[in-house]
Computed example of a mutant assay.
Amino acid sequence: MVLGRGAWLLVGAVIAACMLLVGPSTPLGASSAGSQPVEAARDVVPNRVMTWNICNPCEVSNVDRAAEIAAYAPQVIGMQEACVRDVEMIRDYLENLHGLVYHVKYGSVLQSWGRCGGAPWNPGGFGQAILSAAPMKDRVNVEYPEGGSEDRGYMAVTTTVGGRSVRVFNTHLAHRRQEAFRAGQVGVLAAEVARHDRAIVLGDFNAVPDAPELSKMWALATDVDPRCRPSQAGDCETTTDWHTKFDYVFLRGFAPLEHRVRPSASSDHHMLLADVDPR
């Protein structure tokens, strides 16, 4: 469906009203409706990263998804359960409604008509996606040898965060009760992360912090939540509607400055945002 000029103006007015209620968010902990003009959210925050499982299948609006992202304007966004068509629309709305311009790379592991629609002979790609305000290069897309009940994988790109070149990974591990599959997947991912002195790993790991299968990631990197470690799992801020922490921003060669978990009306996973500092 193609929206006419009047419909676009109405959509823009609604988004603007929502952003006035939410308020700008630089820094992460300083969101308020009257402290800064709404236009502040049009500037990408160069050291801010975000991970978000956007939920699929879910009957939600990509206009709403874009508005939630624009309120925080991260430099890099890692999405899981992402259909190519949805990501294309989200990117367009970010640019056309919010003035935020992103490059995009895809890490699809399925061509799924059931998940993403499309013509039967050309189903939509489903998996991960990375949006970055800076250009990306050297993309790789790896499907794990054993995905569990659904194919899973990771993608990686080289881009810029906080003015420094960094390898960014985005992954989605096997379902919650498939620990053995996740252990193998973490082994594949960790071996590649270990090759980089500076890396940011985003994703839905489908595992709580003290799960044994995450031990190889903890040996390489730290979580953006300084209170969250395997030995202190009870202190970790939850990232899902069922009150568990499954979503992570792991840092290697970066220090966490501030993080925030933002519940979302568009997904059963919360948005996990972090401001980071290159060491």
Rank of each mutant, 00 (worst) to 15 (best):
R5E: 13
R5V: 09
R5S: 10
G6T: 06
G6F: 11
A7D: 15
L9M: 03
L9W: 14
L9R: 15
L9G: 01
L10S: 02
G12N: 11
A13R: 14
I15F: 09
I15C: 15
I15M: 15
I15K: 05
C18V: 15
C18Q: 06
C18R: 11
L20S: 08
L21P: 04
L21S: 03
P24V: 01
P24M: 01
S25Y: 09
S25E: 03
P27E: 05
P27W: 00
P27L: 02
P27V: 03
L28T: 00
L28E: 00
L28Q: 06
G29L: 02
G29Y: 04
G29C: 00
A30T: 02
S31T: 08
A33V: 09
A33Y: 07
A33E: 00
G34D: 10
G34F: 13
S35C: 08
S35V: 11
S35L: 14
S35N: 13
Q36D: 04
P37M: 04
P37L: 00
V38E: 03
V38S: 07
E39Y: 05
A40S: 15
A41N: 12
V44T: 08
V45T: 13
V45F: 05
P46I: 01
N47M: 02
R48L: 01
R48S: 04
V49E: 08
V49P: 02
M50R: 07
M50H: 01
T51W: 06
T51N: 10
T51V: 13
W52P: 06
W52C: 07
W52R: 12
N53K: 08
C55H: 15
P57H: 07
P57A: 06
C58S: 12
C58I: 05
E59S: 14
V60E: 15
V60M: 07
V60Y: 07
S61I: 00
S61V: 01
S61F: 03
S61C: 02
S61H: 08
N62V: 06
N62W: 09
V63I: 15
D64M: 14
D64C: 08
R65A: 09
A66T: 05
A66E: 09
